[in-house]
Amino acid sequence: MLASMRILADLPLFPVAASEQAGSIDALYWFITAISILMTVIIFLGLGIFAWKYHNKRHPHATQIEGSTKLELTWSILPFLIMLIMFGWGADLYYKAQTPPKDAMEIFVTGKQWMWKIQYPDGTREINALHVPVGQPVKLTMASEDVIHSFSIPAFRVRHDVMPGHYNTLWFTATKPGHYHLFCTEYCGDQHAGMIGWVDVLEPREYANWASGGASQGSLAEQGQKLFEQNGCATCHLLDQQGRCPILRGLYNKPVQLADGRTVIADDAYIRESILDPNAKIVAGFQPNVMPNFKGQISEENVIQLIAYIKSLSPSTPASQQGSQQPPVVIAPKAGAAAKPGGAAQH
């Protein structure tokens, strides 16, 4: 009895709001809820009043009424106009959710039955735990090794499906230090309910402390470079002269002319596809069937490391696109190692 009373006293009714997004989504949520309550009250009052007033004891003879076009139009158009407000407001938030700020710190997430693997630019790796600094926009680039997962942090009101075969992104700016749930919200098999973890939001100084404690195997880009050498990529993708395959230096986020005439941007998704299925898009002037398929040969985490390495070959490329007129700059790939998470945005 006491136990059950204690449970009731602790009964949570509304989630904490720990991100910038949370406040704006809650405002819209309450707006829609308020309109819903108002409409429910109108309907219930109508039902209640008519049922009482025109009960057959009090009102034995019904008056036959045909209807009213005026009323019909009113209760069709008026609610629709209110819904247009919801639509516009919601569309604005949706647009913002899909548009990460340029200075967002980038973290990589791989979903796998049944765990979340997190990779930081400095090479730190975690499972089912995400550490982020307060006040800093964070962009997650997410991949799935197997089935569809969905990455959700209720306290931040962010969520995005993680579709196998695609990169999906979401972003947030945490506002409140704390320890928050991380859930998978797309059913993914037996231990779906076990695919949960924690997000720790830290003050910047604590975050710097935490970050300096990790990373032993080099930065993400260095890990990628190792893979690049181990897998023999370097024999054809020469760094500074034309080999059998395209030069990768300065490639990241630049337009690429394809053999079929199309031009695509060499973003994460393009590079991922070109590693796993090289024949999908052939660069103009190159032959197909030169590079082996890596699909099924390397994990999504390895792909993320390789992309980080290729990215490090294009220095100071922000997440946004850059003009192609910028001359390639030769730097040692190790330069990436200097970046700690706080400065990761410079990658």
Binding site: S24, I32, G90, L93
Partner: peptide, 12 residues
């Protein structure tokens, strides 16, 4: 149906 709030409620 509202895009912004679906983000917070989808799959729950």
């Amino acid at each position: 149906a509202t895009l912004g709030t679906d983000i917070a409620t989808h799959g729950t």
